[in-house]
């Protein structure tokens, strides 16, 4: 795989039962930048995003073909540990989904699931909680109430917490499925700022319906339509001079 490529997708197809949702797509997603997946509803962008940590397979009737190489390994191979994959490829969902337990326990939940007890003494967990909450700018607000239930937080704080709980596992890639769609304008602004900050450390792939968000917050965009990748370019190129008439029609608001 080329240097600087985080996710290498080759001739990848996916079926839900008999319905083919992805039609032999190929793309190389670069390391350390934000890539937005855009396109009308049903185009396959969320399906593609969910392929990167194989979370689609929870639906049971999913079959795939092709290759998705992450960290030098085809993640579709039968010997891949899905648990280990999801440790390296974290995911943030549309609606914040903190566990109905304390803030502290939310942040260390992944560590407790993935690390043997000997590797996670209390001091290590404490340090991980502080570091992760600082990373998402929540530490100052929450440090005196870490035993509060996470579900009592504002939606914006919950979404930041959902990002924070990925960080102790030191993922390489963070997938975001419309991470701002449940938030108000100021929450959107602050989550976008956070995502922009995180790209210094992680590769970020984000599904968004919000064209303004894709324009201001992502470095590259992939436009999808009916299960195919139509265009993948730097964001400014796509919005200033789309090469495909279907891309132009979508970003100019003529359909979708």
């Amino acid at each position: 795989m080329q240097d600087g490529v985080s996710i290498d997708i080759r001739d990848y197809s996916l079926w839900y039962g008999k319905f083919q949702a992805l039609l032999g797509v190929s793309a190389q997603i670069k390391r350390g930048i934000i890539t937005s997946l855009i396109g009308p509803s049903g185009c396959g962008k969320t399906t593609l995003l969910r392929s990167f940590n194989r979370i689609n397979e929870r639906y049971g009737n999913v079959t795939t073909q092709g290759h998705i190489t992450i960290l030098g390994k085809n993640i579709l191979d039968s010997d891949v540990s899905v648990a280990a994959l999801r440790k390296r490829v974290g995911m943030v969902f549309q609606r914040p989904n903190p566990l109905p337990i304390s803030i502290y326990e939310n942040v260390v939940f992944g560590m407790k699931s993935h690390l043997p007890q000997a590797e996670r003494p209390r001091a290590v967990l404490d340090q991980a909680v502080e570091s992760a909450l600082r990373e998402v700018s929540l530490w100052d607000a929450l440090k005196d109430g870490l035993d509060r239930r996470a579900t009592e937080l504002t939606l914006e704080q919950q979404q930041k917490l959902c990002i924070a709980r990925l960080l102790p596992l030191k993922p390489d890639i963070i997938l975001m499925d419309e991470p701002c769609s449940a938030l108000d304008a100021s929450g959107i602004e602050r989550i976008e700022e956070l995502i922009t900050e995180l790209k210094r450390t992680f590769t970020i792939v984000m599904v968004t319906h919000n064209m303004a968000q894709a324009r201001r917050a992502s470095d590259e965009c992939i436009f999808m339509l009916m299960g195919e990748i139509i265009e993948h370019t730097p964001t400014l190129d796509m919005f200033m001079n789309p090469q495909n008439s279907k891309t132009a029609a979508y970003i100019e608001g003529r359909y979708g």
Binding site: S137, E193, T196, E197, A217
Partner: peptide, 8 residues
């Protein structure tokens, strides 16, 4: 980490 308002 201080809030840096990178996009702004």
């Amino acid at each position: 980490m201080p809030q840096q308002n990178l996009i702004l």
